[in-house]
């Protein structure tokens, strides 16, 4: 029987949760019974009307912002054992055109931010000793090459292997860590893309919806994924199969 509220009694943090995939994940976790803190840099984009979801203004890449996030989730009822590190940026910028500050900015948010999330999130999970589940949103660009996005590719490849390193380190504490690899999903990140032209490059013939990432993330962080750690869930309509 599908547990209608399989995340009842749990609390979660979803970074980059004001729109797109992150917001869809936050909604789904809340609908499954979790209390959710979403973070984002943009206060004006805060989701205000989603039941069970609370917004905290925070930059994933800022170490100083994380204690505020952890305090907010610590104040929620329920055991904090779900962390979804989703925040990220993906500027198109070929190698020679990419300045060092621009490169650093992508790495700061996507890779260092994911590290900071692990660091602070794991410390909180250790506080209760009941383990937890962390989903790190990488990309198919963390697995295959794509021209024109060197910084994004480096950051997402880094996230993919950091998840495995974390899984090995944290497994004995029952903290599971997996990476999720979306293909082209209908979000603000892809709104300039021509789906009619590019969709068919995915064997399933279209872009994905944020909800199609959500169901995978929920599988990983729920008890249904209890023996899944250190692995990669690719949700790309078959893009990287060939």
């Amino acid at each position: 029987m599908s547990a209608a509220r399989e995340l009842q009694g749990r609390s979660a943090v979803v970074t980059g949760g004001t729109r797109g995939i992150g917001l869809a994940i936050a909604r789904a976790l809340a609908q499954a019974g979790a209390r959710v803190v979403v973070t984002g840099r943009d206060t004006s984009a805060a989701p205000t009307a989603v039941e069970g979801v609370q917004f905290v203004q925070a930059d994933q890449g800022a170490d100083a912002d994380w204690p505020r996030v952890m305090a907010a989730v610590g104040d929620l009822p329920g055991r904090f054992d779900i962390l979804v590190l989703n925040a990220g940026v993906s500027p198109f910028s070929p190698i020679v055109a990419t300045t060092l500050p621009a490169f650093r900015d992508v790495m700061r948010t996507n890779l260092k931010g994911a590290f900071l999330g692990l660091k602070h999130g794991v410390a909180a999970m250790r506080g209760h000793g009941q383990g937890g589940a962390i989903a790190m949103v990488s990309s198919i660009v963390g697995k295959i090459g794509v021209a024109g996005v060197p910084a994004y590719a480096a950051s997402k490849g880094g996230v993919r292997l950091m998840a495995k390193a974390a899984a090995l380190e944290l497994g004995p504490e029952k903290i599971r860590v997996n990476s999720v690899h979306p293909g082209l999903i209908r979000t603000r990140m892809t709104e300039g893309y021509d789906e009619a032209a590019m969709g068919p490059r995915a064997p399933l013939g279209r872009f994905g919806d944020p909800e199609e990432i959500t169901s995978g993330v929920q599988f990983l962080v729920s008890d249904r994924g209890r023996f899944v750690t250190g692995t990669e869930l690719v949700v790309d309509g078959g893009w990287i199969v060939q």
Binding site: K164, G171, I213, G230, V234
Partner: peptide, 17 residues
């Protein structure tokens, strides 16, 4: 998994990581 095809889902407790 409506947008998942051709994928490998490993269920191994981290053995393969």
């Amino acid at each position: 998994s409506s947008y998942v095809t051709g994928a490998e889902l490993t269920v191994d407790g981290g053995r393969g990581a």
